[in-house]
Design a protein around this nucleic acid. Structure first.
Lengths: 342, 342
DNA sequence: CTGAAAGCGCTTACAG
DNA sequence: CTGAAAGCGCTTACAG
């Protein structure tokens, strides 16, 4: 019974005694059919339980009705970070109203991401893409650009792309963090950064160095990592065994901040008594550990929703490509920050 | 340039001087064309950079080339658990080789899951579904069954469904945990369970009670939760303020175990000195906290891959519907378990 | 305003 | 073994 019983517009046309063209017009709310006929057709479609076939529609309308999200990250690390599921949930809250489906693919690196994207596009499975985790120099961008794939950059607008972007300022949160720590009396502040290739990592590191210079900090070390727990632990270990060691460390993620917390504990360095810790992404994890972590927090679901919205506008709309600057992250104070030891 | 330049089988046929039917046969490795012609056609297709249109193929072949995964969980909680991303990564490792795409949707409850599933199916966007988080009595199952949607149950085979299942034994891990704790000397063991409606929660709770009876435990309290950090904390609070309080608590997730750890710390109850804790899902989180949590661990990515495999076999294959029993979770000993206080 | 027809890019019986 | 044709379920110019 499954497939064979599904009504098509031909069935509706037959039942209504009109052409399938008329049915199509009625169903799509286009002119070309009288109000009376339209109402009758809609009633019949409703009664038959008709639903448009996405593939048939895709073939003739040349739209797939789907958008691709290809994430190039290690699955284990992806799982450890709440960011993605929240972002995806936000994306889908926007898609729900617009007959758009989300095609998700998790791959290992940019080369495979490009393969996946190219294939999805070539097979006409997607009308556009959401590009996340942008690198300062990102191999995916020129490929998408040359294929003419519509998309949204989750990151700032770029010179090498015409795609609209959805981003938030990374400088203000860094400043807020440094200002806050300096205000507490810290003079030796270190930064455990994320992937050096990522655009926002570079922006934050530059902002961190600028803020340190502005305040004339005695120490402002930066260590790049791959976002893993291990890298966060290793970096912390290294920073805490230097002399004089920093009295505050900021991390580019919550997972790494937690790793740092754990290393400090093993070294017998009290948090926040002897070391202040700030996590770069807020999540439940920050409240799970002891002491709870001061963190930069923002509405990730809204971020996903905004990204989806801009992409949909581009797909439906037309020429007007409007980027969107989301609200920056703000510092949420908890128990992992305090004045430095005297 | 984007769409218009894409070659179709007509272009290939023209260039090769054969019919589009011949091209289709050649491209799909079906009889009906000589080896020489096939080779020539393939060479031309290759050179033109031809890729099949998924929609066109879907229309005529009546396949969507995609599978739906509709997850009914709170996005925030989804994000907190590494389980899903790992599972999805495993699913996609299987799909990669078979031209199958994954359509992901995150919804709030079963009612919306049913809506989403029905729509995806009606619109011919999916050929089958992956059904996760099965309830003992699950409203999705009869709907899918009546629509005739092929699918795989991530859970045990059910009387109310003909779908193949991929699952792992939940009784053995519970027994291993209780046996281990009893072996350490514990006589008052509590269980903080997950969602009571979930089938595996009920199985585990039954197994827990049976194990407790077998060992003649003095106390074997069970508290149901919604998997949230808050619920885990609340349940722990309640258990630890009873008298005599349990000397060991097992949790149905890592997040709740972490919540329990934090509550114990606030109450000044030492872990593992005065309280042993076992987490029900292993993840990086268990190693992040202090003390690191003893946990039930298993290969989630493989679980996802196996689920995908069974579904693909069902879609391609034919009648033979083979369920698959995965390896059960095993206890990974860390620092949160020890002998009870004397 | 309305209808009949062509076409989207494939697959697959169906004749030669 | 091979080719020409119909059809999948829609949309959309194009004539009346």
């Amino acid at each position: 019974m499954p497939l064979s019983k599904r009504p098509t517009i031909s069935d509706i046309a037959k039942s209504a005694g009109v052409s399938i063209g008329a049915v199509s017009f009625a169903l799509n709310d286009r002119p070309g059919v009288s109000e009376a006929t339209r109402a009758r057709i809609l009633a019949i479609a409703q009664e038959m339980g008709w639903r448009p076939s996405a593939v048939a529609r895709g073939l003739s309308a040349r739209r797939a009705g789907a958008v691709g999200l290809v994430v190039a990250r290690n699955p284990a690390m992806l799982g450890a970070e709440p960011f993605f599921m929240k972002f995806i949930a936000g994306v889908e809250s926007e898609f729900a109203n617009s007959r758009t489906a989300l095609l998700l693919q998790v791959v290992e690196d940019h080369a495979r991401a490009i393969d996946a994207l190219t294939t999805l596009w070539a097979e006409r499975r997607i009308d556009g893409v959401i590009v996340m985790d942008l690198w300062a120099s990102d191999a995916r961008v020129p490929v998408l650009e040359s294929l003419g794939v519509p998309g949204v950059l989750v990151g700032r607008p770029r010179a090498d792309s015409t795609m609209p972007a959805v981003w938030s300022d990374d400088v203000a949160p860094v400043n807020e963090t440094v200002d806050y720590l300096v205000g507490l009396g810290h003079q030796r502040i270190a930064r455990v950064a994320g992937l050096a290739a990522l655009e926002h990592t570079q922006i934050r590191t530059a902002a961190f160095r600028a803020a340190a210079a502005r305040h004339g900090l005695a120490c402002a070390a930066v260590i790049d990592t791959d976002y893993s727990w291990e890298a966060g632990a290793w970096a912390t270990q290294k920073l805490l065994s230097s002399s004089p060691r920093p009295t505050a460390i900021t991390y580019d993620s919550d997972v790494m901040a937690t790793a740092g917390l754990s290393v400090a504990r093993k070294l017998g360095i009290a948090v926040p008594g002897q070391l202040s810790i700030v996590a770069g992404d807020d999540s439940q994890l920050c409240e799970m550990v002891f002491p709870a972590l001061t963190a930069l927090s923002r509405d990730i679901q809204a971020y996903g929703a905004h990204s989806a919205r801009v992409l949909l506008e581009q797909l439906e709309g037309g020429g007007t490509v409007t980027s969107f600057e989301d609200k920056p992250a703000r510092l949420t104070l908890r128990e992992s920050t305090a004045a430095p030891p005297a």
